[in-house]
C-alpha cells in the first residue's frame, strides 16, 4: 500500500477540513447571500476605472445641473456640483472598502499578537498588556479617533490609522480569551511535556486554533470599520479631495446642502444604502462563519 508522505498527509487533512468548512458554510443561505453581495461589490469597485471614466469626478468637468433629480442621463441624479451620484457612489466604494479592510487588518494584526502574548506569557507580561488593552478598550474610540484625526493631516491615511489604533483592543481581548481556553487544554500540556518550547506551542497549536476566530472577527470588524470611516468622514475628517469621495463624505455634502430639507432623496439614500448593504453583507458572512466554526471551537 503506497502511503503518502507526512507533508502530503498534513495538506490533505487541511484540505479536507477546509472543504468540510465550506460545505457547512454553504448550508447557510444568509452567508452565501452575504458572500455573493460582497463579491459583486468588490468586483464593481475594482473595475470602476475600467467601466467608467474617473475624469467625470472632476468638479470642473461636471455636466449636470445642481442637484437634479434622476433622469435617463443621470440614473441617480446629480450632486451639488452636477456630478452623477451613481458615479460617485461607485467610486466611493473603493475608498470605503479600502479603508475598512486595511484598518481592520492593522487592528486585527496588533490585537492578535498582543492577545496571544498576553495569554501565553502569564503574570507580569499579561498584566501589563491587559492594563494597556483595557485602557484603550474603555476609551471611547470615536472620541480618540476624532482627537487623532484633528491633529494629524486630514485624509485617508489618518483615518486608517485612527480606526486601526482604536479597534485593536476588542480583537486583543477576544484572542486572549480564546488563547487562554486553548492553553488550558491538556494537549498543550502534553506538547510541553514532549519538550515543546514557546515557539512550538504557539505556532503548532495556538495559532491554528485561534485562526478561525480571528478570521470571523476580521469579517465582522470590517463592517464596523466601514461605518466608523463613514462617521469620521461625515464629521469632516475625511479626505477633502473631491476626486476621492467616500460614502461618508458624500453624506456630509448631502447634509451640508440640507438635502433632507430639499427633498433630494437621490442624494441622501444611495450612500447610506450602500454602506448598509456592504456592512450587512460582511456581518452575515461573519455570523455564518461563526456558526460553522463554533462547534469546532468548542471541541478544539
Amino acid at each position: 500500500m503506497t502511503t503518502p508522505s507526512p507533508r502530503a498527509l498534513a495538506w490533505r487533512r487541511r484540505g479536507a477540513a477546509f472543504a468540510a468548512g465550506w460545505r457547512e458554510f454553504a448550508k447557510q443561505r444568509t452567508g452565501l447571500v452575504g458572500l455573493g453581495v460582497l463579491v459583486v461589490i468588490v468586483l464593481l469597485a475594482l473595475l470602476a476605472p475600467v467601466l467608467t471614466d474617473q475624469e467625470n469626478l472632476d468638479v470642473t468637468k461636471a455636466t449636470g445641473g445642481r442637484m437634479e433629480s434622476p433622469s435617463w442621463e443621470f440614473l441617480l441624479g446629480t450632486d451639488r456640483a452636477g456630478r452623477s451620484v451613481l458615479l460617485l457612489t461607485l467610486w466611493s466604494a473603493r475608498i470605503s472598502l479600502t479603508v475598512g479592510l486595511v484598518a481592520t487588518l492593522i487592528s486585527v494584526a496588533i490585537g492578535t499578537v498582543i492577545g496571544i502574548l498576553a495569554a501565553h506569557f502569564g503574570r507580569w507580561v499579561s498584566a501589563g498588556l491587559m492594563r494597556v488593552t483595557d485602557f484603550f478598550l474603555v476609551l471611547p474610540s470615536l472620541v480618540l479617533a476624532i482627537a487623532l484625526s484633528s491633529v494629524l493631516e486630514r485624509g485617508v491615511g489618518t483615518i486608517i490609522l485612527a480606526i486601526g489604533l482604536t479597534s485593536w483592543p476588542a480583537a486583543a481581548r477576544l484572542v486572549r480569551a480564546q488563547t487562554l481556553t486553548i492553553e488550558a487544554r491538556p494537549y498543550i500540556e502534553r506538547s510541553k511535556a514532549l519538550g515543546g518550547g514557546h515557539f512550538h506551542v504557539i505556532s503548532k497549536h495556538v495559532l491554528p486554533a485561534v485562526a478561525p476566530l480571528v478570521f470571523v472577527n476580521t469579517t465582522l470588524a470590517v463592517g464596523s470599520a466601514i461605518v466608523s470611516e463613514s462617521t469620521l468622514s461625515f464629521l469632516g475628517l475625511g479626505d477633502p479631495d473631491p476626486m476621492r469621495p467616500s460614502w461618508g463624505s458624500m453624506l456630509r455634502s448631502a447634509w451640508l446642502d440640507s438635502a433632507m430639507i430639499a427633498g433630494a432623496w437621490w442624494y441622501l439614500l444611495p450612500p447610506g444604502i450602500a454602506i448598509g448593504i456592504v456592512v450587512l453583507a460582511f456581518t452575515m458572512c461573519g455570523r455564518a462563519l461563526e456558526s460553522v466554526l463554533n462547534p469546532r471551537l468548542r471541541e478544539g
Binding site: 462617521t231 447634509w255 450612500p271 447610506g272 454602506i275 448598509g276 456592512v279
Partner: peptide, 9 residues
C-alpha cells in the same frame, strides 16, 4: 449596520 447619522438624516 447603518450609520447613526444617516438614520438621523
Amino acid at each position: 449596520s447603518t450609520p447613526t447619522f444617516w438614520l438621523g438624516m
